[in-house]
Design a protein around this nucleic acid. Structure first.
Lengths: 223, 223
DNA sequence: ACAAAATGTAACAGAATCGTAACACGTTTT
DNA sequence: AAAACGTGTTACGATTCTGTTACATTTTGT
């Protein structure tokens, strides 16, 4: 089945150029001319989003933040297109979960190469996360520990996934809430603790890999 | 300060050629002849790793996977050196977080150009503060000293961050209190002293960089 | 060199943070 | 309809952090 790419940019000409070249390369392309227009689409149907940063109305960064904050769409790779190529903006983009970053003006070859890399990796290994004998299959939402199935709840799964994909990174409680819980629910910070405890109890010998640094937050300690 | 590059390749001759040319270009070079040998080094001290894919024992890909899976070393750029230049291997490399890819046989000019590009763009990460072998990652809230994690409390972290980002600037005790403590808490000025002492004890050889000027206050003395 | 002021540091106790069991309430399964 | 499950909240004991104090040491001014 063809892989589907959503191109979001307010410059019509550029969109058409991208559309033509991506279609030639065998992808199915849908174009939206603004962040607002994106909301008319079912974003989950796309395997990749090419997203312009500078757009009238809602900016690309803001849209990315929204997409990444929803569990349903957080896993969709995003490549930012931007004229801004300062270090700061690039970092901001990656912070928001960008999978790559292309500064305008760019060569089409460059864009195609990056699209290929991102799509290549999001279909192969991104769905399987491993830490020693702890496996997570993101696709089927299954976790195994030394070959034994581990029965995690949705919340626990989501937390473990976040921690494992960012080993060593210390997340504050608010960051965890922001990343794990839907944007519209309000939970107390202590709820995080309780869920971490529940998760620890289920992952046996790896419980001690989920660490807390007093005053900062929680992190997964690899090795 | 010179940028440090770790070259990992089992071919001694090639290593020496790379070493000579990189040193001529003004970099500091350390060579390891196997992935196993890399483990003897503190990898965090390097700003770039040139990594051969095909090595006896642990392969370059496997080593890269390990480095990228640890928050501490994930940020270090890697350029793969390889005789394999098939599409598949290149993709595999990028998947593992390679920052570039050079196929053997390569021209030295080519290697130098890519090293320059990678180091050029990875120099000033705004959220990573470095003083010799003392690193602060503001994003992930970690501090390492010669590759070892330093366990700072929130207050200590905050003080060190302030001092390191304003090296040489002398902060009076009230300035420190104002910057480090929340506006609504009241602490005695001597509290600052105690916290500075605690911080000093945790940063080993850099303790002496935190200086006091009698009657004025504290500052970080960069060499 | 001397006393006074400033700084370094160990020890302690109060405060803040954390781990976890128990409970409540809504949802799903049986 | 009852039981099982998921999950947020609360409470309390355990742990860690941190400000204060007291005394030791260094620096400063005369």
């Amino acid at each position: 089945m063809k892989q589907r790419i959503l191109v979001v940019d307010d410059e019509h000409d550029l969109c058409e150029i991208l559309r033509f070249n991506l279609e030639t390369a065998g992808y199915e392309v849908v174009v939206a001319y603004s962040a607002e227009e994106v909301q008319a689409h079912d974003v989950t149907r796309f395997q990749l989003i090419l997203l312009d940063v500078m757009m009238p109305g809602i900016s690309g960064f803001e849209l990315a933040r929204q997409l990444k904050s929803s569990e349903r769409t957080a896993g969709i790779p995003i490549i930012f297109l931007t004229a801004k190529d300062t270090e700061e903006d690039t970092l901001h983009g990656f912070e928001l979960g960008a999978d790559d970053y292309v500064a305008k003006p760019f060569s089409l070859r460059e864009v195609l190469a990056r699209v290929k890399v991102v799509l290549g990796r999001s279909t192969s290994h991104a769905n399987e996360i491993r830490f020693h004998n702890l496996y997570m299959d993101v696709q089927s939402r299954r976790v195994t520990l030394n070959g034994q199935d581990v029965d995690l709840t949705k919340t626990e799964f989501s937390i473990l996934h976040l921690l494992l994909t960012h080993q060593g990174h210390i997340f504050t409680r608010s960051e965890l809430i922001e990343q794990v819980w839907p944007a519209d629910v309000v939970v107390s910070e202590r709820t995080v603790d309780v869920n971490l405890t529940r998760l620890r109890k289920k992952i046996g010998e790896y419980a001690s890999c989920i660490c807390n640094k007093t005053g900062f937050g929680y992190y997964f300690e690899g090795v």
